[in-house]
Design a protein around this nucleic acid. Structure first.
Lengths: 168, 168
DNA sequence: GACTCATTCTTGAAAGTTGAACTATGTACG
DNA sequence: CGTACATAGTTCAACTTTCAAGAATGAGTC
């Protein structure tokens, strides 16, 4: 039995917590769906793929090692492999060998990929704005940022060194 | 050109907005992944499926019309059809014809499904708590609730009557 | 160098999702 | 009634994601 396994009565969610949790689930799934549809329609790819192109566009020489990209996009390497294969087929990304590590690959944004990004960025930003920033007060935006940072912190896949602190 | 199509310079995100947006994406994808894995491991189903069982468990007679369930779970009827087919194969849900509307189907939670829910609720709640409620202050929980409600409101698929107000 | 283990990335199959097409039934209206 | 259209739910094919292997290279140790 792990740290979660003691069978004492669990602390259920309070009513308020349940409501917040529901609201969270609804808002996040609605938004993700909304962005997926918008980008699928306009750019011909799901939101995650678009995010990959964005990350590449901001990297030096518009390229990143696969593992690096996977880490910063919070997806598995496997998923990334498939995704890059698809984006490569579209001509938006190309793979390059890494000279210093023969196992390695760079994913590099092509000019065509950059162009797709240029064409679709305004619509995408508008969608994000309309769903989030145009509806929240400045205070709320700040609060949201703080809240999301705290949550992400707790969920960050633990490094070897940060792992299981309660067992050390 | 639609309301989004005028080619004036789009309002890009400010630096703070970008950071908040990034944090939002990271936190939400990490959490969704985390819950998916936890439930896949412990309960043998993804988070969305678990959510369906929860909704059924809270409905009168533990059953809901397919469309109703799809609406409240924020997923398409198509996706729901597949999901219920899978859950039915597990013996956790059964389908029932609707007597008053021969097109209609109820999805009903079986006793076995209820039992799965009982067994896994503590672990699931613990995961949610650990990721969210244990890390946020009371104020933050309240703020998050308000923020998510505002966002969900803006994304709610428009009713026929609420549709396209700017065109009326 | 040879052994072992770690890391990088890919692959293949199974599972899940999507959007469009389809069946069947209900509803409105002449 | 009959026509037309709306709604409920399913199905199919294409696509995406997951998980478990697998191939290749790197790094540490003797």
């Amino acid at each position: 039995m792990g740290p979660m396994g003691d069978m004492t009565e669990p602390r259920w969610l309070t009513d308020e917590e349940q409501h917040v949790w529901r609201a969270y689930l609804h808002a996040t799934t609605l938004l993700e769906d909304h962005l997926d549809r918008q980008l699928q329609r306009d750019a011909g790819m799901p939101h995650v793929y678009y995010g990959l192109l964005v990350q590449l566009s901001q990297a030096p020489r518009r390229r990143l090692r696969m593992t690096e990209l996977a880490r910063s996009a919070k997806i598995t390497r496997s998923r990334l492999s498939h995704a890059i294969a698809r984006l490569e087929k579209n001509g938006w990304v190309r793979r390059e060998n890494c000279p210093s590590d023969k196992r390695g690959q760079f994913a590099q944004l092509t000019d065509e990929g950059m162009e797709v990004l240029r064409r679709n960025a305004p619509g995408h930003v508008a969608a994000v704005r309309q769903a989030m920033f145009d509806r929240l007060s400045a205070d709320q935006v700040e609060q949201l940022g703080a809240i999301m940072r705290v949550m992400a912190e707790g969920l960050e896949p633990a490094d070897a060194d940060a792992d299981l602190p309660w067992l050390r």
